[in-house]
Design a protein around this nucleic acid. Structure first.
Lengths: 344, 344
DNA sequence: TGGCCAACTCAAAGCGCTTTGGAGAATGCG
DNA sequence: CGCATTCTCCAAAGCGCTTTGAGTTGGCCA
């Protein structure tokens, strides 16, 4: 059943039927109801392909999911982010077009999305300090929202969490607990968020006149193995840290594994504090858990971020020439069982 | 730049230009080269919306990512699966349309995809024993591939891993190590794969005349917290298991956490064997890890599965009336550090 | 020379919808 | 009553591509 057939069956023009179904005011209410009823009865759904061509809108948002590292790892954090965004898209009638490409291929992916106009806007994730994608998208004239920021974030719309403050507070907590030998297991420091987190860490240490120890600072792709290996090396060295600030719950699990193998109790012999994206399957929220969260963490739900980013992006589509929308969320410091006073 | 402009600039008809660019034989090679050069020079890309309307194909595959449980959890396993599938789609020029809906909404999502023809085929994941989506899709005439199987898998195309054998072997390994008090932390047993895994576990136990202990068998959404809580309860009980068979690496991490808190060394005081989907950020593959994988596991890369599923699905699109394609992969049993002889 | 086939190329008809620019009918106003 | 509005509704022109069916060449053979 298409529009022509439906309108013929009603003895009306396609124009009227189309307008009735799309809520335009030029059609009498009574007629509209009759048309809607007929459409429903006939199981009519407008062909989205035809509609897209006619309107020039894709009703789709492009997400380019970066595959990081040489092994092209798939970060589970993006799954939650996308789930959040997807909720909003679904609600607003948008499709989510997902393109997974290694970091080098991202530019080509965006170019193609712009060239064949398969999406109305794109979401940019995990920007580097001076991310070339931003200039590219501005150039292409494709609306976009950056989840995160770059060094110079004034010219475009972005959404971010307060990474510096989050990591400063996390480090402060450890310092308050008496820790002085603190390691930082950061994410890749080509990414802007990692640099901000490092700054938060360093600021906190400097404010207390605690020197940072270079061999206790790492910056790699945030896998479980990375946390494990880094912790193993540090814990096996002559001088070892008593606390770890970790960029994600995943490497934090690796740190706990390393500690456990050495007979060190997390939260007593060793403290771990991590950033927690509130990944749903990790359930570090402490909900339904009388014992509380496993990890003390700076928490910010990546899924909620996805929802918010989607909302902002859709606003950007409606009026692409408005001034940039920029939003910063604070994180929440949640106490879990992975931190305790520095061992004496 | 559109086709009309391009063809006018060349002094050729749209037909010829279109055919030249799409590789039809009716155009002289010399002409084709001239056209291609001009298209490239002009930066011409066919408008995908127009093309989709004209061809009646969407060049897109729908994935409906189920949000499980009351909390609508996002399973990170799907991220890897989708990444694998996405690789293939990108290579073949297909888009990946992702729709995230709670389990109850899946049917509506598929219906809509079929109704407005926004995709050429869909991927069905995590089927239940008698999944209604299959009849629905057959009814709608939308090509689909099931990742997993149902109770009666003869009428449709599917791809699955040998879950029964995997879990039988896993359990056998523990039995060989002398364990008799073995717990099963399964996934939700509404899902077909979980039932198969349970069967594998029970078969192995029965073959050795070891009785299963009902209170050591759980079936829930595979979160870290689930593994933790279940293990806590079992380990704190009067009689406690010495080994755990776990449906995924994520709850296995929870089991390890529970054990660690109790001062039990994983791989010595307690054994854990889990199914490992080779999630990239978990890195349980033991690659680049001289100490080997953390967990002994039945391994099958979910990403490779995604790739294979995509390949099969695309074949199905090309010829929807062919007999069902069905493929079963074996898992690989990898020894890690989480298993050891039963404590005496 | 005429006829036929291959090799090219083209005009035009869709694909199914939205949207512009009216047209006719009903209503309001002086 | 006549004219201007306001409601309703319509015909037709796109959107930019693919594809059908129909030429138009030029070469080759009888």
């Amino acid at each position: 059943m298409n529009l022509r057939e439906l309108s013929e069956s009603l003895g009306l023009s396609q124009t009227t039927v189309s307008r009735a179904l799309n809520g335009y005011p030029e059609v009498r209410e009574e007629t509209r109801l009759r048309i809607q009823a007929a459409a429903e009865a006939a199981g009519y759904t407008p062909n989205s392909r035809a509609r897209r061509l006619a309107t020039g809108r894709s009703m789709a948002i492009g997400h380019v999911m970066p595959l990081t590292g040489r092994e092209e790892l798939v970060n589970p954090i993006f799954a939650d982010f996308i789930a959040g965004a997807g909720e909003v898209y679904a609600r607003e009638g948008y499709d989510l077009l997902l393109s997974m490409v290694p970091a080098e291929g991202a530019e080509a992916a965006y170019r193609q999305m712009a060239a064949n106009a398969s999406v109305d806007a794109v979401m940019v994730q995990a920007p580097t300090l001076d991310d070339p994608r931003i200039a590219l998208l501005q150039d292409l004239g494709l609306p976009f929202l950056v989840h995160g920021r770059t060094a110079n974030p004034s010219t475009y719309s972005w959404f971010d969490v307060a990474n510096v403050r989050a990591f400063r507070r996390a480090t402060d907590l450890l310092l308050d607990l008496g820790h002085r030998k603190i390691a930082l297991l950061n994410g890749q420091e080509t990414l802007d968020f990692a640099l901000r987190r490092r700054r938060g860490f360093e600021d906190a240490m400097a404010a207390r006149n605690v020197a940072v120890t270079p061999q206790w600072m790492r910056a790699e792709v945030m896998t479980e193995q990375y946390g494990y290996r880094a912790a193993c090396e540090m814990l096996d060295a002559e001088m070892s840290p008593t606390a770890f600030v970790v960029s994600s719950i995943i490497p934090a699990i690796g740190v706990r594994r390393a500690a456990g193998e050495r007979g060190l109790r997390t939260g007593r012999d060793i403290s771990i504090i991590c950033h927690d994206d509130a990944l749903s399957y990790m359930g570090n929220d402490g909900l339904n858990a009388p014992e509380g969260p496993a990890f003390t963490a700076t928490r910010s739900s990546i899924r909620a971020a996805g929802r918010r980013c989607a909302e902002i992006l859709l606003r950007l589509i409606d009026d692409p020439d408005q001034p940039p929308i920029q939003e910063l969320w604070e994180t929440e410091l949640t106490l879990g069982r992975s931190t305790g006073p520095a061992p004496t």
